[in-house]
């Protein structure tokens, strides 16, 4: 008999397993990113190529595209684990489920959120955003995708295994994500116009802290409900 594994060790194992799985299926992981770039391309095509005009809507465009892309990425969070039964093993493992949920959420953010954040300055350049705003873009979307992963994890756990679950997921998560959208887009907009984006970024950080502390228990409860 092996020694009992601590919660932290279990969390690290869950995190590494998810990263490894993501690397083996990197085509799936790239889909939300391609979607992100595509959505941001729609705006110049729909509104015209004038960079001055695009700069005015760049903050909102980046954020809405990131919101939709991370919604798409949530498909990868629990659904395959639920389908092949490994989620049940996590539930039965006797480890605190909230900690495992946090680890899985973190892995999901590393795979889906982080690449999107790193890609965003590139997309921003195509929308006529000055280079000086890149810091604010990275911070705003970095904090924002964290919030979206946390909120999305709750929605994803609640809609596990439902027919047309992905449509429902958007309905559940988007209203909850609206405050993050407000502050996140505002931060980028301030930076584009050369102002300090400090205020909205601090508020975003506060939201992220709130989400990271409160979402894991909610995700754990939702997972228990969904896999009974």
């Amino acid at each position: 008999m092996t020694a009992p594994t601590g919660a932290l060790a279990a969390a690290v194992l869950a995190f590494r397993r998810d990263l490894l799985l993501a690397m083996r299926h990197w085509g799936q992981v790239a889909q939300p990113l391609v979607f992100f770039v595509m959505v941001t391309t729609l705006f110049p095509l729909a509104l015209g190529p004038e960079l001055g005009q695009l700069r005015e809507i760049a903050a909102g465009t980046l954020w809405v595209a990131a919101l939709l892309a991370s919604l798409l990425g949530l498909e990868l969070l629990f659904r395959t684990d639920h389908a092949d039964g490994s989620l049940e093993q996590l539930l039965l493992s006797g480890q605190p489920l909230a900690v495992l949920a946090l680890a899985k959420g973190l892995a999901h953010w590393t795979v889906c959120g982080l690449p999107l954040v790193l890609l965003a300055p590139l997309v921003a350049v195509s929308l006529g955003v000055p280079i000086e705003a890149n810091g604010a873009i990275l911070l705003s979307l970095g904090l924002g995708t964290g919030i979206l992963s946390a909120l999305g994890a709750i929605g994803s756990a609640l809609t596990l295994g439902l027919r047309r679950g992905s449509l429902l997921l958007g309905l559940l998560v988007l209203p909850l994500a609206m405050p993050a959208l407000i502050f996140g887009a505002r931060a980028i907009d301030l930076a584009i116009h050369g102002d300090s984006a400090c205020g909205p970024l601090l508020l975003l950080s506060a939201m992220l802290v709130l989400c990271v502390t409160l979402a894991p228990p909610a995700v754990a409860a939702a997972l228990r409900i969904s896999s009974e």
């Binding site: 709750i154 609640l158 909850l176 405050p179 939201m207 709130l210 909610a218 939702a222």
Partner: peptide, 14 residues
């Protein structure tokens, strides 16, 4: 029920 509670926590923030 979980969703309603998550919503009520979010409501003041929204």
């Amino acid at each position: 029920a979980v969703l309603a509670i998550v919503g009520v926590v979010n409501l003041p923030i929204i």
